[in-house]
């Protein structure tokens, strides 16, 4: 059975189609979920895409966390459902307290859009298992509020438990503490990343295909966990 991966569209989401395409290129079936949906349509995993949910009013991701579908998602994520939040999706995950810390205004105040080099530092999460630790990847980054912050104790915990999944290389594009580009929860099923793996899944449209492994990792993890058959 092909794994069914939901992609939630909020009013103002931009990268939902790209995320769904990345799921399909990796071999999964993409399922469109709407912010007002009352349930998750029995999907095997969920991607929260990039964009500007609810116009980014109040704070990025702050209003999205109260969307009807999010109550179900938080419960399911706490129960082990794999969830990947990309860019705005990462902001939604921190606002929903599924991941620690917060994303704040870039320290230089400019919106940034560039191909960004990263180093993968964790390959035990459900979304990074097909990478090698230390592997360098190049994927697009585009954000205005991508500076990762958390208190020192939380940062120490994240590093001590190996929960930083990727770090910025060469430059720190937004003032993120300790060059953190992405993190996972302790269980490894919820991952947030500020750069965009879904924009680097095909030679024609991305700088590389380095992002595809986030999505193939998920499919591998689902098969290994017995959630779906190979």
């Amino acid at each position: 059975m092909t794994p069914r991966v939901g992609v939630i569209t909020f009013p103002g989401s931009l990268d939902d189609k790209d995320a769904a395409r990345a799921v399909r290129l990796a071999g999964g079936e993409s399922v469109s979920l709407w912010h007002a949906d009352a349930d998750l349509h029995s999907v095997d995993a969920v991607v929260l895409p990039g964009g500007f949910s609810y116009g980014d009013y109040l704070r990025c991701g702050a209003i999205a966390k109260f969307a009807p579908v999010m109550g179900k998602l938080v419960d399911a994520a706490n129960g082990g459902l794999p969830v990947l939040g990309i860019c705005n999706g990462f902001q939604v995950l921190t606002e929903s307290h599924l991941l620690p810390g917060a994303l704040t205004r870039n320290d230089h105040l400019h919106f940034i859009c560039r191909d960004q080099k990263l180093r993968i530092e964790n390959n035990s999460s459900m979304w990074t298992s097909n990478y090698e630790i230390g592997q360098e990847i190049l994927i697009p980054l585009k954000n205005g509020e991508g500076g990762y912050v958390a208190d020192e104790k939380t940062l120490d915990e994240l590093e001590g438990e190996g929960r930083v999944i990727a770090r910025y290389l060469e430059i720190n594009p937004n003032g993120s503490r300790r060059e953190i580009a992405g993190i996972t929860n302790a269980r490894g099923n919820v991952v947030g990343i500020m750069p965009h793996p879904e924009h680097a899944v095909e030679k024609l449209t991305g700088p590389t295909t380095d992002g595809l492994r986030f999505f193939t990792s998920l499919l591998t993890s689902l098969v290994n966990n017995g959630k779906v058959s190979a």
């Binding site: 870039n106 320290d107 230089h108 105040l109 912050v149 003032g175």
Partner: peptide, 11 residues
């Protein structure tokens, strides 16, 4: 207080 405020700095 411990969170950087880049907008405040620009002001």
């Amino acid at each position: 207080p411990e969170i950087l405020d880049p907008q405040g700095r620009a002001i």
